[in-house]
Design a protein around this nucleic acid. Structure first.
Lengths: 334, 334
DNA sequence: TTGTATGCGTTATCAC
DNA sequence: GTGATAACGCATACAA
């Protein structure tokens, strides 16, 4: 590997000059610039990003922590982030937090130890206090899908409550009155917010929310399956079920079918997230769109703007969900 | 941020000694070790991985290039890799190649410029020659899902041909004789290998492969949909279709249904990959398992063993697919 | 516009 | 066992 010193030697200039043409800041005469460029060319010179980081105190790397590296939501999110960041020449270091507090802290420590200039965090288990504390240290980070009032500027979140509201409202407007709800783990903010929206829509239509029609799942297919079975077990009639994410909706649909019910004719199913899977399902799943890829891009923009002083458009901190109407919900109105 | 120098000062030893207790190589007296540890503790000292990299000429980072960061296959792959690597204290830098030669080269360059100690590559568009050439440089890398004889040691691949064979054989053994095939882009090695396996199974059963029953898709749902439509258009009867991946199988199933055919009663559908989606589908998709997460782990093991001299089990370079029987295929035998 | 000198926080090679 | 001291490859004040 050629070093900057060898380049300077070949070009017959000082190493400082080589550094200048690389970074393009101060002015260099056209002649020497060409000499240097040619030298870099023939030596196939590649600057060492490590040495550069050490000298400039900037690693040009941002750490990403997601719950899982697989899973459609995280995939879309990382995709949005990477695209944005790489075109800016920053690199992306990833780690998984597994929705576990210890593991999440561990991941954050890991990323910090790697000298990331900034962090993009999708954490669920770690406490608000921990994050507020983290914000007071020198570490810069932005939170995705989480809102903490004290550090609102560091948050990019979805209006989950509104999403839950939209889902249930759509059902209500199509004549459904008895609506079951399969929730994610209620200790997770997004899960409880979505459920709140559901209750809100119900109230708006003068319907008393029946706790027996709530079942708490785990955001996974298997959980949706089990919850649906439990719901059916209660013998309380319901014509529709809204699920707090699409995976659970898939599980719920299967459970219903296993019990001999047809979707959507016997029971309507509403999802949440609008992951790719939703269109693959049969019937195609009606759901609420969670623009997570855009939110990833936005997080990257925030970093570019606030950490690297790049010229970026203003960032929006809260995104609005939208209803996606497909085939898994039937209208009860004639 | 405290530096090693401040630690040495507080502990009353030289900075060389601090370095020794950190790296634990040579012997240090128990007393000074404790002094140093205490000093590190009170200063909340974190060694700079960057300075360490510069001095040791080892960045402890490995670059991963996949076609897309979203997509179930890549998610599972990255997940396997990250898990393995992080427990070894290595970090993972990711980039996307988008199945495009220029973009893939660009990604590789990017990763190399980032001083990765090694690369894990899932590349499709770049030529064998390029990779062979790359192997002759000082850059260490391992290929996933690609086999190049000249650099076989750098390859971890699936026996795609065998997978295609298994898929079609299962259909054959259940009485199907007229079998259509929806392929991935045939310029991709895995796609053509899978098709080869299909032909092999056909030949073994004395069936002449009808080119009119081959339709070349794009490995995406929409492509599967279009291919199925085209196949139906030919009016050539077939009782089953094997698709080169699960996404296309989803598309094919939808197309069949749109034409009023039931799956599997009117037509059987076989997938390939066994992504999570396959179990979510209705009917649940029969498919061929592609153990990509294990292959990711194996790639990580290879790196740990060959680059970092870690103690790792032997790596297997070619993985075998397995048939997964579910509900999308019907037996024609009574 | 260009060159010199110093520092970034470690590891590693010597001595002691 | 421990301590100086020289790399590592580059950025950057400061001079020229």
């Amino acid at each position: 590997m050629a070093t900057i010193y060898q380049v300077s030697e070949l070009a017959g200039v000082s190493l400082a000059t080589v550094s200048r043409v690389m970074n393009g800041g101060t002015r260099v005469s056209e002649k020497t610039r060409e000499k240097v460029n040619k030298a870099m060319e023939t030596l196939n010179y590649r600057p060492s990003s490590i040495a550069r980081s050490l000298a400039s105190n900037c690693s040009n790397s941002v750490g990403i922590l997601v719950s899982e590296l697989h899973g459609p939501i995280y995939g879309a999110m990382m995709s949005g982030i990477e695209k944005q960041l790489r075109t800016a020449g920053k690199h992306v270091i990833i780690a998984a937090g597994h929705s576990d507090a210890a593991s999440e802290k561990d991941g954050i420590e890991f990323l910090i130890a790697r000298n990331c200039d900034a962090l993009i965090l999708h954490v669920e288990a770690v406490s608000d206090e921990y994050l507020i504390e983290l914000a007071t240290t020198q570490h810069k980070f932005i939170l995705i899908n989480r809102y903490i009032p004290q550090i609102a500027d560091n948050c990019i979140s979805l209006n989950n409550r509104r999403g839950g509201y939209l889902a249930t409202k759509a059902l209500l407007e199509n004549g459904h009155r008895d609506i079951a709800y399969i929730s994610g783990p209620l200790w997770k903010m997004d899960a409880s917010d979505r459920y709140l929206g559901h209750q809100e829509a119900l109230a708006e239509h003068g319907i008393i929310c029946n706790d027996a029609l709530l079942s708490e799942g785990n955001f996974q297919e298997e959980g949706g399956n089990e919850c649906m079975l439990a719901l059916l077990e209660t013998k309380i009639p319901f014509s529709a079920v809204v699920c707090a994410n699409d995976e659970m909706a898939a599980g719920a649909m299967q459970a219903a079918r296993d019990k001999g019910m047809a979707v959507p004719n016997d029971i309507s199913v509403m999802g949440f997230d609008n992951v790719l899977l939703a269109q693959y399902m049969y019937p195609k799943l009606s759901t609420v769109n969670y623009p997570v890829q855009d939110m990833g891009k936005m997080a990257a923009s925030w970093i570019l703007k606030n950490i690297y002083q790049a010229n970026q458009p203003d960032v929006s901190h809260v995104f609005e969900p939208e209803l996606v109407w497909r085939d898994s919900v039937i209208s009860l109105k004639r």
